[in-house]
Write a protein that binds this DNA or RNA. Structure first.
Lengths: 341, 341
DNA sequence: GAAATGCTTGGGAGCGCTCCCAAAAAAAGT
DNA sequence: ACTTTTTTTGGGAGCGCTCCCAAGCATTTC
């Protein structure tokens, strides 16, 4: 089947190019029987318009970009990203948009790719994973280029851009409050890196829960991690001398690392020390003890980002929209629920 | 900066459209000083050709597709896929190709997306993750459509297509042989699903090692998993009554599940029972015991696939090329190396 | 010094669509 | 019946590039 053109279809249906184009784009002012006839030809021939031709004429590529800046090279070690990616990909498929993936791992690569992203014509809009301090530049450039964009995660001190984020503060707050209600007194936290808004917000939630319940904060119980398993492990090792009886880790994977350290120190989970993570990814259940954690609606989150972006593309980027999605505390074994102390 | 066209650049450089095009595409027959002059204008203006216009005129989109068929919906639970994706994305960036991601999770979604993939003009070529029985159809359609494609993983009984794969048989063979050398006698295996070539090949390697070393196979020690943690866990539970003293799991994540089951049964790893996995992903080191495993060169693997695909795009798809990459056994604690029995 | 050869350059045509405008057809109004 | 209004249809122009061909120019050859 040689790829046919709109003109071929027109000939077969006995109409003009324009009419076929109208049918193709669901435009009004086509007689019903003509529309049906054209549609029939399209279907039997399996005709599809040439994407490049369409893009050229309409200045609209039907493609959106998903950018993971180089600061997100832990794409791997944290299973959060593939989940997110999947949600986004699915939403794109559903809307018949093509998803272009830009996974950059160096500052230089970012520069290089940037010129092609900002070139109008390739992408109708861009999704940028952010939440990291270093991503401001990328976002700023996209704003300057006036490319419709939605930031995934709250950007640093930039409000003139649309973003979707989850309620990290509240999620952390609820998790820690739960730990307090369970009777824990010395609750530590392993935070995300200081350049990460998600990490910062979760720490804020932790502190808020402490103060609201009248527990005083102890800096020996606040360690910075890097969202990796090893980061959690080493942070925990440092925290152990301060004798925490519970730990809130800002991600599941750090919780897993932290539990490894606790176990090595001969502590039993959850009787000697309780843990709560953040994410609720499948791996939350892999370790010996089922992890209590804060569930993020990752897939819906990605879908929401796509939804907003498409809206921006169609209706203009102003005013910027900010969406905050709620989390849910999932109680399993590691926090010691169901166990008397 | 309004996006300028090739014609604008031409005017500024005092030459014609054609000359600029020649410079842009590194074509010969342009006087050196003219070329420099044009190049200077391109650089100062930051001009980039409009992708769609270029694609339309050249019938070449500079975009390749990465297809994960619906049978690969465990994209998530297995960290192998993000690693692979990253390798591929990086290779694309390097070659200035755009990567379009097609992550399908239903049979219907596959159909839908397919018409757009096979439409000439969108993609110059396609990378298809395979190794699963159900993917034959996808691959077959792509062959029919004569779209350049490289299959990632060995396809089922289809040799008229290019693919890259790793040497699963040998990898498994080496792992099991190592276990035998360590003195283990009752070596079980948790295989991949029967519709997966990787799973099948690893099983073949296991059997080969057994027979070559004169161990008789015991069907009670051969359980089928599904490449998930839970699959590994339940397979191990079933295997335990048969008293294995070592287990070769066809993926790291299944090994982790299996070790969880073993621990729950009160067994010590590696003194009571040894484990070897397959993949060597970061999570191999997360569990209590560091996992001995077969390392796949995942990133290079992806890069290789891209390399072959670009070659196919430029030089035609015949004859199909088959690349098999070697693995490496990474010895850590879980196999009991360094421990006398 | 004229003819032949090789490089370099410009411009027309065309890739396959969408968009606009004007013509044709149908519907409505008098 | 004829005019006016509305709906439907066709075709030209153009999106921004590449490719081809012919013209222009420099260089070589006899």
């Amino acid at each position: 089947m040689p790829d046919l053109t709109l003109e071929d279809v027109a000939k077969q249906a006995g109409v003009s190019r324009s009419t076929v184009s109208r049918v193709l784009n669901d435009q009004p002012n086509v007689r019903k029987d003509v529309r049906n006839r054209v549609q029939a030809v399209i279907e039997t021939t399996g005709f599809r318009p040439h994407p490049a031709a369409r893009a050229l004429a309409s200045q609209h590529s039907w493609t959106i970009g998903l950018v993971y800046p180089h600061s997100v090279s832990y794409f791997f070690t944290d299973p959060y990203y593939p989940h997110l990616t999947k949600g986004i990909a699915q939403a794109c498929n559903q809307s018949s948009y093509t998803l272009a993936l830009f996974l950059v791992d160096t500052k230089e690569g970012e520069e290089k790719i940037f010129t092609s992203i900002t070139r109008k014509g390739l992408l109708d809009g861009v999704l940028v994973q952010s939440g990291h301090h270093g991503d401001q530049e990328v976002i700023g450039k996209l704003i300057d280029a006036k490319i419709p964009q939605v930031v995934i995660g709250r950007p640093f001190r930039q409000d003139n851009v649309s973003y979707v984020d989850i309620d990290n503060i509240n999620g952390a707050f609820n998790a820690v409050t739960h730990l307090i209600r369970m009777g824990h007194k010395r609750i530590g936290t392993i935070t995300g890196p200081g350049q990460s808004t998600a990490g910062l917000d979760r720490k804020t939630g932790y502190l808020k829960a402490l103060s609201e319940r009248g527990l005083k904060m102890d800096t020996a119980l606040i360690l910075e991690g890097d969202f990796t398993e090893n980061g959690g492990y080493y942070a925990m090792k440092k925290m152990l001398p301060a004798k925490p009886d519970a730990v809130f880790a800002a991600s599941d994977i750090m919780a897993i690392g932290a539990m490894r350290a606790a176990r090595e120190a001969g502590l039993n989970i959850p009787t000697d020390i309780a843990f709560v993570g953040f994410d609720d990814l499948p791996l939350a259940t892999f370790s010996g003890v089922q992890l209590t954690t804060v569930r993020q609606p990752v897939a819906q989150f990605g879908a929401k980002a796509v939804e907003i972006l498409l809206d921006l593309i169609e209706n203009g980027i102003n005013p910027p929209r900010h969406i905050i999605m709620e989390t849910e505390l999932v109680i399993r074994e590691s926090c010691g629920a169901g166990i008397r102390k």
